[in-house]
Design a protein around this nucleic acid. Structure first.
Lengths: 336, 336
DNA sequence: AACAGGTATGCACAAACGTGCAGAACGGAG
DNA sequence: CTCCGTTCTGCACGTTTGTGCATACCTGTT
């Protein structure tokens, strides 16, 4: 009686029988009069397309010590990604991002305006996004990606495209350099209507997704090595006690960012604007980002933090590692 | 570094790695320094304990024709359970209930007051409930289960116990007969403080879960054959044009229930009380319940309907089967 | 009608998984 | 310390699932 149906509809049936009725693929294949392999593929498609949603809800009491400590200390919703501390940086990044993608998915809803930064973390994240059907959502680029060697368009736009794809959202690029050479050029550009459109969109963000850069990382991140900043710039940053950045906007260890000259030339969002966004998801992988992360937390930039276990451990208890530079007491809370 | 941890915490870790990071059980076993079989069991435990939540979200456009038709026709949230129409009654019931249990789970939240009926459907359902951690929830029995042969306590309480177990909720039984012999006994009992406590709880229900009885079913349900009603009772029901019941409260094809004498002796909730409940989940399996179900829908008793595909087909298009008795036009909508 | 390019299907094999069973580890009670 | 009952663990086996490949099937084009 159930004759041929659309692929999506078949996927739905299969998914219901598999995940909701606990039938084996074999049994489902017989009911749908097809081969088991087809059912396997239908189920893949169902997961792939976001039809099947798998969530892990950790009740407070079984949430590990670590998450609770971070949650109460920094007032953010923390997700610690379990990893062995013997894995190499790339593997950890990969796994943090796979998990982050799944954790973000349920936070996205229709008519969302999602600000997205770029950088190796967000790029990796973008490659693992799980699809979710939403309507009328928009992805807006948080900061320009151009530098002296390239317009950065292809790199950043690839990231944006993946986000747009996963959530069926409109993509709004931000085709400006990451840093202007002259602050006044930025000021003028910021009055251009084409740019205003993006800035207005940013002001209406319901969600922002970003990593952090840390200036003293063993392997300094993209921004600090990739042709975005010259010697003079770097010097001015250290002179200003900058510890890191979010979307190419810099801050100090205590979270303050006033008077940092580079920010006047940066295309990234004013941190005060960023702080008005309801959900601000920060993804961090790797212990070398610790000081940048500390600054970002002190600045109250994140409402949700996803990070690997190793880094989380250092964050709560710097004594166990050599990365201790600031005590928590010094941190002033800049969150709204 | 991650030394020995509690079982729950290990389950959580494993679940995150398996469902969120897509590692194989083998890989997880190596990270947790245990055997693959243990990981398999940890994951079972995680699913079993409601830590892992699998949901299927069917976007409107891929929702099958059938669901959309029912949804708009009866103004309820419909979930059609796919089944082959060649399966026997028991198999269909089983599968509808397995799926219903999973569908109900996400609807339950903390501090809920859940009214539960009894009967073969709800009993089967109770055997397949998936655990979910909630706090301060209460399960309250909707109607008494005593009859001339038994107090029904063990049967009904077993159902209740399972619900309480799944949601870590307090269970409130209702130790009265399903039907009183005399309406005035009920009236008096309803003034007893022990009974009032239950009635008050029922008035505060946030959710109700029930099946339907249909008087003309080929295999009549429990209530119509199990020693609850005598010949006179049955005669009075047909004389009053009763088509079915929910929690031993009767109604007619058009949804009305005024002037049905049996209801004065029934321990079930006044339908007006039932209709005030936010979520009223009705589970139906088997085409023989069609007329009872039609009545219940006309009476606006359900906000959510879970039923098997075969029955759903007949419900939208009675012409394809021989069960057509009333056109939809005749139904008056008694929902609030 | 023939064809090309793409997609969907089933087979067969390999990988991943669940579970009964036997032994190890644990935790009181004597 | 020893005993016994319970729980936990890993192995081995059978089952279930993912996927490369060859084939069948579309769909639009010449």
């Amino acid at each position: 009686m159930p004759a041929k149906r659309s692929a999506a509809s078949q996927s739905l049936r299969a998914a219901q029988m598999y995940y909701l009725q606990d039938l084996t693929m074999d049994a489902i294949a017989r009911e749908l009069r097809t081969s088991r392999s087809t059912v396997s593929r239908l189920l893949s498609a169902a997961r792939e397309s976001g039809l099947v949603q798998i969530q892990i809800r950790s009740p407070q009491d079984s949430a590990p010590e670590l998450e609770r400590a971070l949650r109460s200390r920094f007032r953010v919703d923390v997700h610690v990604v379990p990893v062995l501390d013997t894995l190499n940086e790339a593997e950890v990044l990969e796994r943090v991002c796979i998990q982050a993608a799944r954790l973000i998915s349920p936070l996205v809803d229709s008519s969302a305006v999602i600000g997205v930064a770029w950088g190796s973390t967000v790029s990796t994240l973008s490659r693992h996004l799980t699809r979710k059907i939403t309507h009328g959502s928009t992805i807006v680029q948080l900061n320009g990606a151009g530098n002296t060697q390239t317009t950065g368009i292809t790199y950043a736009s690839e990231i944006m495209r993946r986000f747009g794809n996963a959530y069926e959202a409109k993509v709004e690029q931000f085709p400006v350099p990451a840093f202007f050479d002259h602050a006044e050029t930025k000021t003028l550009m910021w009055d251009e209507r084409s740019v205003r459109r993006i800035l207005d969109l940013q002001a209406r963000m319901t969600m922002a997704i970003f990593g952090v850069g840390s200036i003293d990382a063993d392997i300094p991140s993209h921004v600090y090595s990739g042709g975005y900043l010259d010697e003079t710039d770097l010097d001015s940053l250290s002179a200003g006690n900058v510890v890191g950045d979010v979307a190419t906007v810099f801050f100090r260890a205590n979270g303050s960012s006033d008077g940092i000259a580079m920010n006047l030339r940066s295309s990234g969002p004013d941190l005060d604007v960023l702080r008005t966004v309801r959900r601000r998801v920060c993804v961090v992988s790797g212990a070398s980002k610790i000081s940048g992360l500390r600054g970002a937390l002190a600045a109250g930039l994140a409402t949700d933090l996803i990070l690997d276990e190793t880094t989380a451990r250092i964050l709560v208890d710097p004594d166990t590692a050599g990365a201790a530079e600031f005590s928590t007491a010094e941190h002033r809370d800049y969150s709204s």
